[in-house]
Amino acid sequence: MRNDHRYAGKFRIGREIEVNRLGYGGMQLTGKGVWGDAPDRENAKNVLRAALDAGVNFIDTADSYGPHTNETLIADALFPYPQDLLIATKGGFERTGPNQWRVNGNPEHIRQAIEGSLKRLKRDVIDLWQLHRIDSRFPVEETLGPVVDAVKAGKIRYVGLSEVDVEQIKLAEKTVPIVSIQNLYNLGNRQWENVLDYTIERGMAFIPWYPLASGPEKLKTKISGIAGRHNATTAQIALAWLLKRAPNILLIPGTSSLQHLEENMQGGNIQLSDEDFKALS
């Protein structure tokens, strides 16, 4: 199933670790409401292995997916890991049930989250650890204290943030270097345009979550016309648009289906013309 993803290209995280811009997000390999393990664990492992076969070397997960089950699944499926595989994880949420997400920026919680992720992923060092959300109950430098310690101890290589505005990024940068931002962003929702522009300026990776959303109905008509011309699906056009939007965008579409995985991967083989891109933008 290996594709050349010839239009996806590569990006260097922290200007050092080169990854293919078409990655994979593990969140869907859990139970309903991102709670509990993947209902079909063997299939989930096959999807992860197929992603690697297709050229993926950037996988995004979090300790809160399951919680904990997603990291364990990734290790069960892929350990010992290929040398060029970057696994990014996140901490800073507590889970109390399906679809329940509680922000916890308590430094003690963060410290435990980092140690737990290292164990479950069977890693001595997390290449990219991301703060899942900033907790307004704690100054961000306090929340990031254990992260700084882990970086100094060689347990975390790079640090990212999720769902933040430019001011929050600047504030965090006073405590620890930030190499990536993971915010909601897709064809239909571009509220974080200024954050994307900031990451471009700063050489940071921008990782849109929910990348496959195609947005309002009036956009869908446009997309289907363009998709028809490219002999592609709506989802593939949504991914191709993101890849063309900026060279620092890393995509992490998630799926529990081998067929969808293959379809998403093909999105890297579609090159939108400037006219197509303008029409969708």
Rank of each mutant, 00 (worst) to 15 (best):
68 H>Q: 13
93 F>N: 11
7 Y>A: 08
130 Q>G: 09
169 I>N: 01
96 T>C: 02
74 I>D: 06
153 A>C: 08
9 G>Y: 11
261 L>G: 09
179 V>Q: 02
105 G>V: 01
250 L>D: 01
127 D>S: 13
277 F>N: 00
20 N>C: 09
146 P>V: 13
176 V>A: 10
191 Q>M: 12
5 H>P: 00
81 Y>K: 13
171 L>Q: 13
74 I>P: 06
16 E>P: 03
11 F>I: 03
126 I>K: 05
133 R>Y: 05
145 G>P: 00
223 I>A: 04
209 W>E: 04
207 I>K: 06
60 D>Y: 09
77 A>P: 08
147 V>N: 11
73 L>D: 05
175 T>H: 10
177 P>W: 11
39 P>F: 09
3 N>V: 14
188 G>K: 01
186 N>K: 11
120 R>A: 03
132 H>A: 14
94 E>R: 15
241 W>N: 01
178 I>A: 04
97 G>T: 01
19 V>L: 04
252 I>C: 07
128 L>Y: 11
186 N>G: 13
195 V>M: 05
131 L>W: 02
95 R>C: 06
270 I>H: 01
255 T>A: 12
167 E>V: 04
196 L>H: 01
192 W>C: 08
126 I>F: 04
180 S>Y: 00
174 K>G: 04
246 A>F: 13
92 G>S: 12
139 P>H: 06
164 V>F: 08
12 R>N: 13
183 N>C: 13
105 G>Q: 11
126 I>P: 07
195 V>C: 05
70 N>H: 04
79 F>C: 07
118 L>F: 10
140 V>Q: 06
62 A>K: 07
155 K>Y: 10
57 N>L: 08
268 G>E: 11
19 V>M: 07
41 R>E: 15
212 L>M: 14
269 N>S: 14
78 L>H: 03
25 G>S: 13
82 P>H: 09
114 I>R: 05
243 L>S: 03
62 A>Y: 07
31 G>V: 12
173 E>H: 00
255 T>M: 08
264 N>F: 06
99 N>K: 14
212 L>N: 00
53 D>S: 11
90 K>V: 13
31 G>P: 03
28 Q>M: 14
268 G>L: 09
35 W>M: 10
267 G>H: 00
102 R>Q: 15
135 D>L: 00
150 A>E: 08
99 N>R: 12
243 L>K: 02
157 R>S: 13
1 M>F: 05
234 T>N: 13
53 D>E: 15
95 R>E: 00
128 L>S: 05
57 N>A: 05
65 Y>Q: 01
278 K>R: 15
149 D>C: 06
151 V>A: 06
35 W>S: 04
236 Q>L: 00
2 R>M: 14
210 Y>V: 09
232 A>E: 03
125 V>Y: 09
209 W>N: 07
164 V>G: 06
207 I>Q: 08
185 Y>Q: 15
94 E>W: 06
240 A>Q: 01
7 Y>N: 10
179 V>T: 15
125 V>W: 04
178 I>N: 03
131 L>N: 10
76 D>F: 00
277 F>R: 00
93 F>R: 08
